[in-house]
């Protein structure tokens, strides 16, 4: 039996255009919100782990009311314990605040394993898994691409990869795996409508980071396009003489 907490973050669809207005990313311009892709791999791994070993999953998110959607989607796949952490200033929480809020929820869930993505598709930081592990006094295995219900995990190394095991409690962060998140069936979708979400406060200390603003990335000057393979010698010349990369 395992108790797994899965951390699911709601992010803009990866196809979304990101527009900065008055020094902030304009969230109202984002049409579609989804569960962060790496979190979905973590979630599928947790579903398979609990199916094989017995036990249950608690799905935890941190965010505003719209983030309930990721928990409802989890409910449609059979998860009954759903927790959303809510902080008024949730957009500007620093790494410590996010980690301690999530660690508190993991502890409250009584989980001995935490599965999450290696990084979120919005902030791209990759601090949350290792940081929560530190707070919980747990090990953390990062960038896992394969897992099994016996508790062995495949992670990359400089010379290839290695299969590791870990004592619990542990945090596992997932990169892409072979297993895409399953789709819910009709019964699951019906159940999700009635799912109850527990909303809890983050209860964290003050931020140590001042947010100065968002900006659009510097635009590169437009490049040159050449027709046909006859242009290859000219491009190679430019790579050597103009770009100086050859």
């Amino acid at each position: 039996m395992v108790e797994i907490a899965v951390l699911l973050k709601q992010v803009p669809d990866t196809n979304a255009k990101i527009v900065v207005v008055n020094g902030r990313v304009d969230e109202s311009a984002i049409a579609s919100w989804v569960t962060s892709p790496y979190d979905e791999y973590a979630f599928e791994a947790a579903l398979q782990h609990t199916e094989a070993a017995g036990g249950s999953i608690t799905a935890i998110t941190l965010g505003p009311a719209r983030a309930d959607k990721v928990l409802k989607d989890a409910a449609a796949l059979g998860v009954t314990k759903l927790v959303r952490i809510w902080q008024d200033d949730w957009q500007d929480l620093d790494s410590n605040q996010v980690q301690s809020a999530l660690a508190n929820a993991v502890t409250a869930a009584g989980a001995d394993l935490v599965y999450c993505g290696k990084q979120s598709a919005d902030r791209n930081q990759g601090s949350t898994g290792p940081g929560i592990a530190e707070i919980l006094g747990a090990a953390c295995i990062t960038e896992v691409s394969e897992s099994d219900s016996a508790g062995s995990y495949l992670r990359p190394t400089a010379s290839g990869s290695e299969r590791v095991t870990v004592s619990s409690p542990a945090v596992v962060t997932f990169t892409k795996t072979q297993n895409e998140l399953r789709r819910p069936n009709v019964r699951g979708i019906m159940m999700a409508k009635r799912a109850q979400i527990e909303v809890v406060g983050g209860d964290v200390s003050a931020s140590q980071v001042n947010f100065n603003g968002h900006s659009s990335p510097a635009q590169k000057p437009p490049g040159k396009t050449y027709e046909g393979s006859d242009s290859v010698p000219e491009v190679v010349g430019l790579l050597r003489d103009e770009a100086k990369v050859l």
Partner: peptide, 12 residues
């Protein structure tokens, strides 16, 4: 942030 679609500036 957003895989390079925007940048964030912070001060600590």
């Amino acid at each position: 942030i957003y895989s390079g679609k925007a940048m964030q500036e912070v001060t600590v």
